[in-house]
Amino acid sequence: MKIKLGGYGVLKNYVGPAENGREIDIAESKPIKDIIKEMNIPDGMVMLISVNDEQKNFDYLPQEGDDIKLIPPISGG
């Protein structure tokens, strides 16, 4: 199953830029939190997940062709 994955801010260093998400092949659907872990992104670096421009939670199971963008925390005030 192929999905597109990219990140904003510091997350570009782990998965490349969101505006040009890289295609990855996953053998089976698994929660997005597991994919984040496999990408060696430290816990806490992802604040929000956008899938096809809709916010999803960390347990979301990606579907074929999803465009997934990872968003780091904002700096709050």
Binding site: G44, M47, I74, G76, G77
Partner: peptide, 24 residues
Amino acid sequence: QKHPNTKLFIEQGTASVTNWSNEQ
């Protein structure tokens, strides 16, 4: 305008980081 944080800031402002801060 292309960045998703624009929408986030318009919806919740800086309070959007409250949950994350607790999770950390």
